[in-house]
Amino acid sequence: MDAEKTQNKRILVGMGEFAVSHNPHTLSCIGLGSCIGVALYDRISHMGGLAHIMLPDSEEPVSKISNPLKHADLGIEAMLKELLKKDNGINTTGITAKIAGGAHMFPTMDKSSSMDIGKRNAECVKKKLKSLDIKLLAEDTGGTHGRTMNFDLTTGIVSIYIHQQETIEL
């Protein structure tokens, strides 16, 4: 095996990005607020992807969107495509999902002015996963706190760090 494959590397996924990799790597979204981290995993091949979704489904034609990956529908689609391309052995039925995020960060801000974006993000992500026939195994969404999400591709475990709270494992 080459060095890159054996190294226990942590890959950071920024807003409106996704990453696809394999064990023993860890994929991370740092400081999710209303954004959602969508982790897709194939436990046979230990391959997976993590997308950092910012916005609900795209309403405009793709050509008009500056970064399609920001959106729930287009971001998940693009990540799944990349995962299937890199992981020749599997089809979508072997892939499962775990999601985290979708908070409402400013408790005193009324939800209409924030457009309830966190909740809508979560709804759009779940709808997209369902339409792709990907089983949602676990989620930690909502609330008024930020989350950091670490996705271990060796075990498929997603750990969620929340400020001044115990780490949650999905």
């Binding site: 607020g33 960060m105 706190h145 930020g146």
Partner: peptide
């Protein structure tokens, strides 16, 4: 909270 969380909201 985490900077990133507020920012992405």
């Amino acid at each position: 909270d985490m900077t990133g969380g507020m920012l992405n909201q």
